[in-house]
């Protein structure tokens, strides 16, 4: 209960600092580079193969109804609505929540956080806010890239193995998407970004017990961030499904 309260206090302080001076723009751009550019190769790889596997699996099911031509539609809807945001957020959680927790945790156990406070800097403003803002900016962008590369991966399978024409695949994929899907696909990574970055920073700043504690904080950050992604995607999907139905 106390941890939940502390988490919300950290979240509140981090968000409030967005509008407060001083702005650590250097740290913000550094974090955007680490999280965004650093995650790009793994997001592209994962996105491509997710789309490709989706096309392979779905084409079998669709073949039973003679609807292989709609493979593009299934791939695009699944990726844009759900798989793109969730997989990208999970990758960023594994790569960056752990990084944030271990980096901040090491700073805690070596008293660098205390030193920062002693030397006139608010560690939340200097360390947490740039990470939260950077993740909030780059995770939706990474998701768009993952979605596009995934749909392209589905196209490669559809063209070379399922013998669909490019027009067949791309028009089916394009027409399947509605504004609701696009909004859902962009809102989700934005929400996940706050969870992923805040969880990483929270466990990092709560680190106790030396280097062993840093390892524990890192593991906890990845586990909690991953569970939160599934938890949040369920609720967000429920909201969007209810809205689409009404």
């Amino acid at each position: 209960m106390l941890a939940v309260q502390e988490f919300y206090l950290l979240a509140g302080a981090a968000l409030k600092n967005i509008f407060r001076r001083p702005f650590y723009s250097d740290d913000l751009f550094l974090q955007m580079d680490i999280i965004g550019v650093g995650s790009l190769p793994i997001v592209i790889m994962t996105g491509f193969f997710s789309g490709a596997v989706m096309a392979l699996q779905m084409s079998r099911a669709l073949a039973q109804y003679g609807q292989v031509g709609r493979t593009g539609m299934v791939v695009s809807i699944t990726l844009v609505r759900e798989l793109g945001p969730v997989l990208t957020a999970l990758l960023v959680a594994g790569r960056n929540s752990s990084g944030m927790a271990s980096e901040l945790g090491s700073m805690v156990v070596t008293e660098q956080i205390d030193a920062m406070r002693a030397l006139g800097t608010d560690p939340i403003q200097k360390l947490v806010t740039p990470r939260v803002v950077a993740t909030g900016v780059v995770l939706p962008l990474l998701t768009i890239i993952a979605d596009f590369v995934g749909i392209f991966g589905g196209f490669i399978i559809s063209y070379f193995l399922l013998n669909l024409t490019p027009t067949q695949y791309w028009s089916s994929a394009w027409r399947a998407l509605e504004w609701n899907d696009v909004v859902q696909g962009l809102l989700k990574p934005f929400v996940f970004a706050f969870a992923v970055s805040l969880v990483g920073c929270f466990y990092g700043l709560k680190t106790t017990g030396g280097t062993q504690g840093v390892g524990r904080a890192t593991t906890q950050a990845v586990v909690v961030a991953s569970v939160m992604i599934f938890f949040l995607t369920f609720f967000l999907t429920k909201i969007f499904v209810s809205q689409a139905g009404s």
Partner: peptide, 16 residues
């Protein structure tokens, strides 16, 4: 207040 106090932490606590 802290700007008028100097503190040497146990292991130095330099920003690595």
């Amino acid at each position: 207040i802290r700007s008028r106090i100097g503190m040497l932490f146990q292991e130095g606590a330099l920003f690595d």
